[in-house]
Nucleic acid binder design. Sequence first.
DNA 1: GGAACATCACCGTGTC
DNA 2: GACACGGTGATGTTCC
Lengths: 99, 99, 99, 99
Amino acid sequence: LLPQTGHLRRTKTEVKGMAGNPDEIAKDQLISIIERVERLEEEKKGISDDIKEVYAEAKANGYDTKVLRKVVQIRKQDAAERQEHEAILDLYLSAIGLA
Amino acid sequence: LLPQTGHLRRTKTEVKGMAGNPDEIAKDQLISIIERVERLEEEKKGISDDIKEVYAEAKANGYDTKVLRKVVQIRKQDAAERQEHEAILDLYLSAIGLA
Amino acid sequence: LLPQTGHLRRTKTEVKGMAGNPDEIAKDQLISIIERVERLEEEKKGISDDIKEVYAEAKANGYDTKVLRKVVQIRKQDAAERQEHEAILDLYLSAIGLA
Amino acid sequence: LLPQTGHLRRTKTEVKGMAGNPDEIAKDQLISIIERVERLEEEKKGISDDIKEVYAEAKANGYDTKVLRKVVQIRKQDAAERQEHEAILDLYLSAIGLA
DNA sequence: GGAACATCACCGTGTC
DNA sequence: GACACGGTGATGTTCC
């Protein structure tokens, strides 16, 4: 679990030092990583729930959520395509020395 | 696409009125729904990127991201399981008439 | 739809040969694939219906199908978990260089 | 877990009878239900795996599995529609007394 | 190839 | 008692 430093780590019981020793630091770092990820995933779940709410509200107003989802999807694709087209254009411009 | 109001809707060209007519309202509402969803999905993507960053940073510090992801997953499962066990208990109690 | 062989395929009308030409073979192969999948999906649906029947019969005998489904689910999870635990152990052992 | 007979069941320790008493029967019945479901779900999983295999084999032969899946889906929809159409036709025929 | 995500179908429930 | 709804579990797709 600990970062791989290229050698087998000393076991915890070998460590007699004060707080601040490498193992402690690594442990804190590990906990920090885990908790940051967990915090972000909670936020992400919150957003997902918000999206569901929007669709639920739309449905309550008589919209067909399946169609709505399709619309959002298509617009996303279009946006991606536009970006793609610009990238190609840039490529062409570069190719003829007009970057 | 428009909310189903139970009758055939007037076509747009029949409408001569000022802003504020039902079609306009419906259109605005539709746009509002789409944009709210799109905004939220952007936020969601941002969070996903943040999570990737955390893992990337961890990897740079020598951690095995595969293991890290596993740890996060296990902790999530454990939390879910605790909840699940309570739900099962309730279910069983109900089943034997001790709700 | 046809398998990509890396070159543009001859159109059907160009082919004058007897049965056994590549296009025929490809066509037969395609039909075979589709029909095998369809046959299997029918079987699968049959099994799903059988499962529904078992639950329906159980319900008729006074069992709470919700609880029954839960029991089946739990047993499946338990089996999966046992497998999972071994996988985690392997992963951890690898992580500390004891693969 | 046991079938609901409308009253709280005697606890097991109250039962002094020989094999063949109602509790034993209920228990056997319960086990039978669970095992039949589990057996069927295994079969179902087997079929699913078979389907995956067919697609894998098709892929190995150069087919685009995404397209293949689409084809299967469309054919299924068509079949369902045909059935639907027949049902509507029957309905109309009944309506005019030509059932 | 496996995990995360979105979609889809089913089941149980409330309503008329 | 059928139909619509929400929640839940399975399936298919995408990303890594």
